[in-house]
């Protein structure tokens, strides 16, 4: 469904992503894990058109995306909950959600659906988003991306700065979103949580994919355990 081939991305003269290829099949959860600065966010930015890659291709159902502007890529069926959430702090929860559905004609039922996923948002729909807790903001970011009704949703470190309990809730909801038909590309440093819910995983180090396998295999891979699961 989503296919990246030989992607190279530069920041100025510095190459941040080197010859990366990965694919996400329909209905999958694919986790991309790596340390700080490995280039995970950069890959997502390249997919969603926020940063133009140097070379390589990104296709969704065979449609080339690299030449499209970011706002048109959303219409093709990719949306993302960006790193550090990127919510609109002075707008209410509901207004944030409205912006998520900007490209679609939504009915009240569509909003009720995300309130169903995250009841806390439903209770707080008139609250100014900047005053939400970190976990609630993450829920909002995911819901907002969902309302764009994507075929593939990109999630950039949803567990960032969250307590284990909230992380668990959010990851369970990600699974639910996936079961309801949305394909997921999940970027995480929390390798354990991310691989546990994923079908397949990729490991990225300094801009290159060094490993890719079924998620449960990666979970038991010695290198991965050493490097990302804190086991020696």
């Amino acid at each position: 469904m989503l296919e990246i081939k030989n992607l190279n991305v530069n920041y100025g003269a510095i190459r941040a992503i080197r010859n990366v290829s990965l694919r996400v099949e329909k209905g999958e959860i694919v986790s991309l894990i790596g340390c700080n600065g490995a280039g995970k966010t950069t890959i997502l930015r390249a997919i969603s058109g926020l940063h133009r890659p140097e070379s390589g291709s990104v296709t969704l159902d065979g449609i080339e995306l690299t030449q499209l502007k970011a706002h048109n890529i959303v219409r093709k069926g990719i949306s993302q909950a960006p790193e550090r959430r990127g919510i609109f702090p002075n707008l209410t929860v509901f207004e944030n959600l409205l912006m998520g559905g900007f490209t679609r004609r939504l009915s009240p039922a569509d909003y009720d659906k995300v309130y169903g996923l995250f009841p806390r948002l439903g209770e707080r729909r008139q609250q100014v988003a900047g005053t939400l807790s970190g976990g609630e903001q993450q829920m909002l970011a995911i819901s907002r991306a969902l309302l764009a009704q994507p075929k593939v949703i990109l999630l950039d470190e949803p567990s960032l700065g969250l307590a284990p309990q909230i992380t668990k809730t959010i990851f369970e909801t990600i699974q639910r979103i996936n079961k309801e038909g949305t394909t997921v590309l999940l970027v995480e440093q929390n390798a354990h949580a991310a691989l546990k819910i994923a079908n397949r995983g990729y490991v990225i180090e300094v801009g290159e994919i060094i490993l890719s396998d079924a998620a449960d295999k990666l979970l038991h891979n010695d290198d991965v355990r050493k490097a990302y699961l804190g086991e020696i």
Binding site: K69, G86, L91
Partner: peptide, 19 residues
């Protein structure tokens, strides 16, 4: 609403599909 969102966060607005 599009204008408000670009005041708030231009990159997020763009990734909501707002030109």
């Amino acid at each position: 609403r599009a204008l408000l969102s670009l005041r708030e966060d231009e990159i997020a607005a763009e990734s909501m599909g707002i030109n």
